[in-house]
Each structure stands twice: as structure tokens, then as C-alpha cells.
Amino acid sequence: MKKYIVLGLLAVLGYYLMNVFLLIDFGMPHFAQGVKDVYLSSSENVLQVSNVVTAIVVNFRGFDTLGEVTVLFLSATAMSGILYKKRHDIGDRSILFPASSIIRAGSKMLFPTITLLGVYVFVHGHLSPGGGFQGGTIIATGFLLMLLTYQNYSVSHNRLVWVESIAGILFVVIGLAGYFMKGSFLENVLPVGQLNDLFSGGVIGIIYVLVGFKVAAELIGIIYTMLHEKG
């Protein structure tokens, strides 16, 4: 009975949603024109950053990104608080089967390559698609591979906390440097180079590298907490 009531409600909701969204022309410019044009032109001419999405995430809406990274940090902390156990309860990671020698050798070969790909993605965040969030996630995936393969592979929790805190503090310090030297938080204080150069865009490249380290440390922490859970 409940199922049919829910289906009826969803049918009404879907009918109105489709009607509303079919009124919006697909493939036509319909957001406020000024915002997009200002972002595109100042990203190309003032900041000299090729990837406009990076310019928006790190510079124009950089305060949002700071808040977002804080939310991720809070969720990692909350997870380790919720899954808290007394010290003597923590056993080995529960893996059903030990990995075969092919998987051990293969993951040892793949791990540096995956890490290198992640570093490439977040160093070139302002030139090509990618950036700190994507690169950090790719590095966390490499660590996940090692944690699943080797039963006694462990990541130092202290080191993760250090990497994470130093990256966060440097982010805020660069933002405050912009505030005191140019007048607003996260304003660019370094010289901007040429478009499509590696050292272009001033502080944007540096901040995205910091975000990459921070996101990688937080995601590795989340995975590590989850994997040490024993049912």
C-alpha cells in the first residue's frame, strides 16, 4: 500500500519537474551573462590561468574551497570518533584471503605510477583538466591498493595529521598575505606569468598543490579508519 502512495507522489513530482526543466532551453545561455563573461575574461587576461574552473574554485571562490576542505576534515574526524574502539579491541585488518604473489608484485609496480599520476594531475591543475581534488583522490586510490594487498602495510597516523595541518595552515597564510598586501582574502600576491606556462597564475598553482596534499591525507585517513573496522 505504502509503495503505491509513494509511486503516485513520485509521478506527480516527476511530471512537474520535467515540465519546469523543459521550459529552460537546452544549450542556450541563460545564467546571468555578466558573471560568466567577467570570470572568463579576467581569468584569461588578469590571472593568466588557462583552466577557468580552477580559477573559479581557487581564486574567485577560494573561501568556499577553504570551507569545503574543512568539511572534509570534520567528516574524517567524526568518522574516527563514531567508530571509536578501546585500544585492546583493535586487531589486524580483517582480510578474507591473503593476496597472491602476482597481485603483490603487480601492486608494488603500480603504486609509484599511480602516485606519479596523482602528482602530475594536481601540479598541472591550472593548465589541464584536473587539480587538487582529483589528484588527491588518485593518490588515495594508490594507498587503498597497497592497504588491500599487504596485510601489515600501515600508514602513520601522526604523519597524515602533520601533512594535513601544515597544508591547511599554509592555505590560510597565503590567503592572509593577500589580505594584508592587496586588501582582500586570497588576492594574488605573486607575479602572473604567461598563459599556458607551468609557472603562471601566481598563487593559484601553489594553493592547488596544498589542497591536493590535504585532500589526499584526509581521504587516506577515512579509508584507513574504515578498513580497521572489524564486524
Binding site: P129, Q134, T137, I138, T141, L144
Partner: peptide, 14 residues
């Protein structure tokens, strides 16, 4: 492409 890379890394793997 940026969003596609994020979705492929986070949604599929993690």
C-alpha cells in the same frame, strides 16, 4: 572534463 575526472575517481573507486 574536470567534473568527469572527479566523478570517475571518487564515485567509481572510493
Amino acid at each position: 572534463p574536470d567534473v568527469a575526472l572527479t566523478e570517475a575517481a571518487i564515485g567509481v573507486a572510493l
